[in-house]
């Protein structure tokens, strides 16, 4: 049996994000891509489960960036056994969650994993999170905001975070789909040399997929948040800034 991990590359929100002239997508040429942070946690959680159960880990992704290989080889270098890349006429496009889940569902079904793990959410999943969408399409049990997992006979025990530190413990019959919020350990680091080794020694399996007819999220425009509520900026040297901060605190009786 296997554990399937779905990886998605998303625009790096630490970088400046520009909107393209159509107004309905980012300027994809200026975007730099990273693996969705929560997907990195999903991979880590799967690798931890592998250490406990010996399950194979297969990483799966739809290549919308032309750069997915790097992410898949990195996952192989970290300890995944297989990598599957879905390719088609989807490069450079912003796939809605439902379109993404639609492409993934038959491939996942074919892999017949014990568990599917992916990130709890992504910076661009306008029409909702992948785990519940895929769970609904496959009609498999699913839950998100997961911070811990344990595999048992025919089921997976998960710890789901609610709010204010309250945790909900659930048992889901397998196969199940989990949206991982945080792995039990910080996602492992892998040196570049090991990634290069994976590139030399392993192969990424490719699956051709047909582009869905309606693949983009439905929106009329993207825009930057209005600057109305923006902070008054304090400028000058660190000591100037500190004097101003202390003045502000003094005026309010906070210092």
């Amino acid at each position: 049996m296997t554990l399937a991990v779905i990886l998605k590359q998303v625009p790096d929100v630490v970088e400046e994000l520009a909107i393209d002239p159509s107004g309905t997508d980012l300027d994809r040429d200026s975007v730099s891509y990273v693996v969705n942070e929560f997907d990195e946690h999903a991979l880590e959680e799967a690798l931890l489960l592998r250490e406990a159960t010996g399950e194979d880990v297969v990483v799966v992704g739809v290549d919308t960036t032309g750069e997915l290989d790097q992410a898949l080889y990195t996952a192989l270098a970290k300890g995944a056994q297989r990598a599957v890349k879905l390719v088609g006429d989807v490069e450079g496009s912003w796939l809605s969650t439902r379109a993404l889940a639609g492409l993934l569902a038959p491939v996942i079904r074919e892999l017949s994993p014990r568990l599917v793990l992916t990130g709890v959410q992504a910076p661009d999943d306008l029409d909702g999170q992948l785990a519940p969408t895929l769970g609904a399409l496959l009609d498999w049990p699913h839950t998100g905001v997961v911070v811990g997992t344990e595999l048992a006979d025919g089921l997976v025990r998960v710890r789901k975070e609610l709010w204010g530190g309250i945790m909900l413990d659930l048992e889901l019959a397998t196969p199940a789909v989990l949206g991982i919020q945080a792995a039990r350990a910080t996602p492992r680091y892998v040196p570049v040399g090991r990634v290069r080794q994976a590139m030399r020694e392993s192969t990424i399996e490719e699956v051709e997929v047909e582009t869905p007819v309606e693949s983009a999220p439905k929106l009329s425009r993207l825009r930057a948040p209005e600057a109305a509520g923006r902070a008054e900026m304090l400028t000058g040297s660190p000591s100037d800034v500190v004097e101003r901060i202390l003045e502000i605190l003094r005026a309010r009786g906070l210092y």
Binding site: A101, G128, P132, T133, A136, H142, G144, V145, K160, K218
Partner: peptide, 19 residues
Amino acid sequence: TSLGMDVAAAVATRLGWPL
């Protein structure tokens, strides 16, 4: 929320309604 996120996307997908 943590609870609503499990439900919204799944129900919308099942019903075929936009989310």
